[in-house]
């Protein structure tokens, strides 16, 4: 049960972003820019950064949601699951492995990011903008994960919920849907 009254049909972050639309507005803009804006990292690669940070913060809702988004963008389920166990074993580029390791350090603390981790990413061809965006995406998910769990929001147990959400994130990104979310009222059963 969330600590404050949130709409039943909008679990996890989705209810919070509707509860407080004024504060949600710039957070949505930042997320859309970082995860879907122009970048030399693919949308799937950026979803992997969101996933590894949410996984390490043990945020069930965000991990499942961004795993689903990455899966639908990649067209397979293996990469996320392997990455969560062992970044080096994941079928991603060497540069991406180095960036995911930086993201993992950011999850612990900004101060935990080592010069060695940065140097490795640069050696493997990461640009300053890619390193910047990796750090900021990882930091942003430290915000989301704390917001979602700090308010004790509900994480649905039905995997089909996240498949639908992943599809929505692929098609619409992170901007608020123009017509809101009332059409979801019949689709989600409280878990």
């Amino acid at each position: 049960m969330p600590y404050i009254p949130l709409p039943d049909h909008l679990p996890g972050i989705t209810g919070l972003l509707e509860y407080s639309q004024v504060t949600a507005h710039p957070i949505r803009i930042l997320t859309q820019t970082l995860l879907r804006g122009e970048s030399t990292l693919t949308a799937a690669e950026r979803e992997l950064i969101a996933t590894i940070v949410s996984h390490n913060n043990e945020c069930k809702f965000c991990t499942a949601a961004h795993t689903a988004a990455a899966d639908v963008l990649l067209g397979e389920h293996e990469t996320c699951e392997i990455m969560k166990q062992d970044i080096d074993a994941a079928p991603v580029s060497e540069k991406m492995k180095a960036l995911l390791k930086i993201a993992k350090q950011v999850q612990v603390s900004g101060k935990a990011v080592t010069a060695d981790a940065i140097a490795l990413a640069k050696e493997r061809g990461a640009t300053d903008i890619e390193i910047h965006d990796t750090v900021l995406i990882a930091a942003l998910f430290c915000l989301y994960n704390r917001y979602v769990d700090g308010m004790a929001t509900v994480a649905p147990s039905d995997p089909a919920f996240y498949t639908g959400l992943g599809q929505r994130l692929k098609e619409h990104g992170y901007n608020r849907l123009p017509n809101g979310y009332d059409h979801l009222k019949t689709q989600v059963q409280p878990s």
Binding site: G110, V113, V135, A138, A139
Partner: peptide
Amino acid sequence: MFNRYVDGL
């Protein structure tokens, strides 16, 4: 988020 952005870079 802000703290990690500032120190992480």
